[in-house]
Design a protein around this nucleic acid. Structure first.
Lengths: 109, 109
DNA sequence: ATACTTAGTTACATAAAGTAAGTTAATATT
DNA sequence: AATATTAACTTACTTTATGTAACTAAGTAT
């Protein structure tokens, strides 16, 4: 691979949304903190990959993992400020989708 | 997979940007029509996958394939109106990246 | 002691992406 | 006439990512 790095920041941002499921995970968390099993059920991701993604997102400072010492233990994943700052990105995707995606054909309007 | 379909249009839009390379391909084409080999070289994608992606994007009405009968044949890929309409999406990603990505650490600002 | 719950992890199977060589068509070169 | 060149792919094969389903750990409750 050549890797011309058009703009390293931009590429690095794209590499986040680029990965399967990250967009939906962030979209879910924009509604508020959620537990592992809730995210899993809501977006239909496999536990294996959700675990992987949440670790990535945490490492990138987009998601925060909060442990509540109840019984059984409750763990919630929430967006950080950096994560919340992605809301306009998802909104612009939504806006584009509203204007250009025909939900029946999944193709040209 | 459960597939709760949060919003079918939104999901379908995400499934485009979601795939590896599509974001960069569209970003490239925002600068104007480009040939296969140029895109390939600029973003460092393999020919096999670029071919696959361009067909997908064409099928979704985001990219138009233009054949110029020169010698050797010249083929250019350009964004359609639907494709150009993605510019604000990429801009919002760029904007987020500028504010939140530290290009050195690739992580928290 | 056994069972239940959440939040994972592990082992294995299938699908997607990377690599490198090959194909096609229209010239241009020797 | 045979060989080479160029762009745009395609094919065969390897590596990586994702899906599936069963399993583990910690802390109760029965």
């Amino acid at each position: 691979m050549a890797d011309k790095t058009i703009c390293p920041k931009f590429e690095s941002a794209l590499n986040i949304l680029n990965k399967r499921w990250t967009g939906l995970i962030i979209f879910q968390l924009l509604e508020g903190a959620q537990r592992f099993s809730v995210i899993e059920g809501n977006i239909g991701i496999s536990g294996r990959v959700l675990s992987e993604r949440l670790k990535d997102l945490e490492k990138q400072g987009i998601v925060k993992r909060n442990v509540y010492d109840e019984t059984p233990v409750r763990i919630e994943y929430a967006l950080t400020e950096k994560g919340k700052a992605l809301e306009p990105v998802l909104q612009s995707i939504q806006h584009w989708a509203d204007g250009w995606i025909n939900k029946d054909t999944k193709s040209i309007v």
